[in-house]
C-alpha cells in the first residue's frame, strides 16, 4: 500500500515537472510547480517525516509559490513565444542532463550501500527534528539563518530606490 502510493505520488511529481516545462503560459507552469511541491510533501509524509511534509506545504506551496503567482499576476505576463530552441541546448543539454542524473544516481547507490529506507523510517515528530537542529546541527543551522538574513538585507537594499536616481523621498 505504501509502495503503491509512493510510486503514484512520484509519478504525479514527475508529470508536474514535465508539465511545467511544456506549458506555454507562465501561470500554468507556476501551478505545475505547486503540484510538484505538493506531491513531494506527500512523499515525505509516506516516508514518515510528517513535520517536513507540513513545512514543505506551508513554506513552498503556501508562501513561495503564492509569491510567484503574485508576481506573474502583477506583471500580467502573457504566453511565451515559440522559438525553435537553441542548438547548443539540444546538443549538450540533453546528454548533459542524462550524464548528470546517472552520476547522481550512481553516487547515491554507492554511498548508501545496500541499505534501503523503509517507509516511515525517517525522524518524523517535531521534537526529534528540533533536537537535531538545536544540538547536533546547531552550527549549520545558525550559519543558514545568517545567510537568510543577508538575503533579506540584500532584498531591502535592492527594493529601496536610491534618492539620487529619482526615487520617491516619502
Amino acid at each position: 500500500m505504501h509502495l503503491i502510493l509512493f510510486l503514484a505520488f512520484g509519478a504525479v511529481c514527475v508529470a508536474g515537472a514535465v508539465n511545467l516545462l511544456v506549458q506555454k503560459h507562465p501561470i500554468n507552469s507556476a501551478l505545475s510547480l505547486v503540484v510538484v511541491m505538493g506531491s513531494l510533501a506527500a512523499e515525505y509524509l509516506l516516508l514518515g517525516a510528517e513535520f517536513v511534509a507540513a513545512v514543505q506545504v506551508i513554506v513552498y506551496a503556501g508562501a513561495v509559490m503564492v509569491l510567484f503567482v503574485f508576481v506573474i499576476m502583477l506583471l500580467n505576463a502573457g504566453e511565451e513565444e515559440e522559438t525553435k530552441g537553441s542548438r547548443v541546448a539540444m546538443i549538450f543539454g540533453i546528454p548533459g542532463m542524462l550524464v548528470g542524473s546517472l552520476l547522481i544516481a550512481w553516487v547515491l547507490i554507492e554511498h548508501s550501500g545496500n541499505k534501503s529506507l523503509a517507509a516511515g523510517a525517517l525522524p518524523g515528530p517535531p521534537k526529534t527534528i528540533g533536537w537535531l537542529l538545536f544540538h547536533d546541527y546547531l552550527l549549520p543551522f545558525e550559519v543558514t539563518s545568517v545567510l537568510v538574513l543577508i538575503a533579506i538585507m540584500g532584498a531591502v537594499v535592492l527594493a529601496a530606490a536610491p534618492a539620487s536616481a529619482g526615487g520617491r523621498k516619502d
Binding site: 513535520f51 507540513a54 506545504v57 506551496a61
Partner: peptide
C-alpha cells in the same frame, strides 16, 4: 495545527 496552517495557506 501545522496541517490547519498548511491547508489555509493554500
Amino acid at each position: 495545527l501545522l496541517i490547519i496552517l498548511g491547508v489555509t495557506s493554500l
